[in-house]
Design a protein around this nucleic acid. Structure first.
Lengths: 262, 262
DNA sequence: CGATGGTTTGACTTACCTCAAGAACAGTGG
DNA sequence: CCACTGTTCTTGAGGTAAGTCAAACCATCG
């Protein structure tokens, strides 16, 4: 499977400090690492890549060498079926991880593309594996991270298989709300970095349906949307809709994204 | 979340030898382990549980202590939403793994139930983690296993979001065909251990639709089905249907189940 | 500025769901 | 071995949520 090397981001920003907000790093800290470990972790987190909107981080079929942590911006990952059709498999916000689905095949089964100007940390996988062996907490964290992604995919399966369009959108909006809130941003006013068609694709709907849904939600007074800017005015109503989907009585995010913390 | 301890399978069959066909074990062997490692691996794979049709391996919310490898029989895993609705998240055949989605939460986010008389290996997770640290190949295998599950879930997302009912069934049938073949069984004649409603639930369809699909496929001469017994008569036709979904030109299983090998 | 691609809106179609009623099947106990 | 009973499966009729098509609208950007 050949790729256009031209479009690829080859340049690695060499210098600058480690991204201390990267998930693996921050997650390990609280567990208490000794200086030597911090230093080594720091070392492999050095490299950063700047991406502009539309830039490709990796293509389907690319050899798997590293996983990536989003520092700033946002990316989407998507598979491409033989007829060229895309299926968005996830949106990735700061602090979240990309590429874990490539470990088993040894190549990336999906493509990752920046939705806006983004910076990401490249974490070479062999080094990470090696280090995980030395640092039990890191190994555990890595396993947790992957496990969480499985768990979230299962919630998404549930949403796609059992929920109607309205419920899916409600789930998604609350999911993003929760992810923004976790980063210390507003849970009710935020900017969705992806297009409506990316959203609709992710939710297994037609773009037209997505558009109609936003209008309906707005008519109900549940939210205000102006382009990508969203203001949730009645989160409770959305929760009522999404509620059916929640696996637990309350509190736990229903469809929390591929975030790093757990 | 309280459970009926009564229905739980508490008894652990003590004695008998390790299950040498369990995925982790068999997967590590080819990589060449020394005797000591084999012995230790053997040790934690000792315990087996016999399950009868309908028996519950673990419930949603159960504390996470171990992962499980299917030795014989078949199980399904499913989440339960607040309104009591089930969503089947996977079918698990011999050599495949259950419970990896529980690592991050520390409790099982889904329920596992035997579809027929089954025996499974319980693999205590702390011991497994510990051993993975000592045996690099095992660590890698574990990461691969989880990565593969993510990858497969993404294929399933694609199927649910972008494929119609016929295509989904074709994909599923070929998937099972491939899984049976891998175990050395016939790829064209097999017995699906689950009910039509489990199948339909998994594929995000109504049971009635499933029934109609089987009839249609039979009318087309693509297969013969008598209850749970399936005979694929024109796999090529099914492949043509499912083909749209394949991520790669050919060869690779489209929606291969949570199997151990890769 | 015009070109391009994303978004909205409306009219129409359809794949799949729902409901309901039989038919086949699988246990269970006599 | 055969009724009996509760499931699961099948089949049909009819409804509807969401898709498709097509056109207008609107941002963004060279």
């Amino acid at each position: 499977m050949a790729h256009w090397q031209g479009e690829r981001i080859v340049q690695l920003a060499g210098s600058k400090g480690a991204c201390s907000d990267c998930s693996l790093f921050s997650l390990c800290l609280p567990k208490g690492l000794d200086d030597e470990h911090v230093r080594r972790l720091d070392e492999i987190l050095q490299r950063q890549r700047p991406l502009r909107r539309g830039d490709v981080l990796f293509r389907e079929g690319d050899g798997f060498r590293a996983v990536y942590a989003v520092r700033a911006g946002a990316l989407k990952t998507y598979t491409i079926s033989r007829d060229g059709e895309e299926q968005v498999t996830g949106f990735h916000m700061p602090g979240e991880m990309i590429g874990l689905d490539a470990v088993s095949l040894g190549e990336h089964p999906c493509e990752a593309r920046a939705l806006e100007t983004s910076t990401i940390c490249e974490i070479p996988f062999p080094e990470l594996e090696e280090l995980a062996r030395a640092i039990p907490d890191l190994q555990r964290q890595l396993l947790r991270l992957m496990s969480k992604e499985i768990f979230q995919d299962h919630e998404m399966l549930h949403a796609l298989a059992r929920r109607n369009a309205e419920e899916r959108l409600a789930i998604l909006l609350l999911n993003f709300s929760e992810r923004f809130a976790r980063r210390g941003l507003s849970a009710t006013r935020f900017r969705l970095p992806m297009s409506r068609s990316d959203l609709s694709n992710y939710l297994g709907l037609a773009p037209e349906t997505m558009s109609r849904l936003f209008r309906r939600f707005q008519e109900q007074g549940w939210l205000h949307s102006r382009g990508k800017e969203i203001t949730l005015k009645e989160p409770a109503s959305l929760e009522r809709l999404a509620g059916h989907c929640q696996e637990r009585p309350c509190g736990r995010p229903t469809l929390s994204g591929p975030s790093s913390a757990d």
